[in-house]
Write a protein that binds this DNA or RNA. Sequence first.
DNA 1: GACCTTCTCACCTACGTGTTAAGC
DNA 2: TCGCTTAACACGTAGGTGAGAAGG
Lengths: 205, 205
Amino acid sequence: SELRAGRDKGDPTEKQLQVVLEDATLWQRFREVTNEMIVTKNGRRMFPILKISVSGLDPNAMYSFLLDFALTDSHRWKYVNGEWVPAGKPEPPNHNCVYIHPDSPNFGAHWMKAAISFSKVKLTNKLNGSGQIMLNSLHKYEPQVHIVRVGGPHRMVMNCSFPETQFIAVTAYQNEEITALKIKYNPFAKAFLDAKERNHSKDAS
Amino acid sequence: SELRAGRDKGDPTEKQLQVVLEDATLWQRFREVTNEMIVTKNGRRMFPILKISVSGLDPNAMYSFLLDFALTDSHRWKYVNGEWVPAGKPEPPNHNCVYIHPDSPNFGAHWMKAAISFSKVKLTNKLNGSGQIMLNSLHKYEPQVHIVRVGGPHRMVMNCSFPETQFIAVTAYQNEEITALKIKYNPFAKAFLDAKERNHSKDAS
DNA sequence: GACCTTCTCACCTACGTGTTAAGC
DNA sequence: TCGCTTAACACGTAGGTGAGAAGG
């Protein structure tokens, strides 16, 4: 997944700007069965984690990285007979809040020296204190990253989104294939992976 | 503990700069019995935590906060008969590395909106990967904070140190009064506080 | 009833403590 | 021996999981 920026014209400093989605193969596995992300009152992290590599920034200029979530369509979704299907009118679109990457603001050199991970963003279905992003359950979203130049006149450097990372917000997993993938790959769900292995040993003995 | 900056001359933007040490009373309790800080190969956090409140920065200017440790004298220390006494020549002074506060760089407004905590700095006695500060065991140090203006021509805005926070680096606690204070006030040592309480109940019963 | 949401829970990850015994 | 350092350890803090029962 590689993008080149739609940039402001006449800017000489970010000509070769490139953004690459990390763990694209993992994201693809979830997308194949329609990804779901839990939303809770207190906020739930995403898994997989949105992670990007960036090159082509001005190492000495200052940038902030923002994340928000765009609705991909204008209806609710419903899980019936093992399938997600469109269902009815959407909720009125909420204030699409934005998550500021905690390293922000920082120099281009900082953002380029390692992959940028949005591991700590939390998704919620209630209006809360800051640091959390409110989404409507049973709606489909696509994460979007915004790179903004700061520490001088602000200027949008790039917007980019990643179709592989689309998901439906839910309050509980609907598709058990998604549950299985989350348990298999998320270290924090290790307890349930172990439980499954114990059951298999029992079956074998 | 309140300081006013020794500033570069002719600078109009940080005229009322003020730095206050937080938890000064706690620091004082440790200092009364000569504070010690553990250094380990992989790095050990400080306790108490160095925490300061700052006002008088330019809210829209960009700053980084740096922490390093100055030797307070030129000899080793030794703990004999329940007392710290000077003992012999010091180690050759090492590269006095600097810890950059993880919120750096950031706007003045950010640094002023809440106390700035250096909770994550780790002290070590071995040359390691970055993020850790190497100190010589059995030498006495005083933490120093440096405020640097960045995102333009760099300029030192202020240096300040806090005598209350002086300590001797050790690989194991020497003074059991220090051990007791650490256990009493550091939540991460709760296990040993509980153990002590269990022993007291046993004595009573 | 069917669907969706909320809450509590056991079980993990990750890592910060002083203790203790061993090492040098 | 003595002084100092190291590494393994038990036991906390802090918080991220899906499961499952309860609620609306």
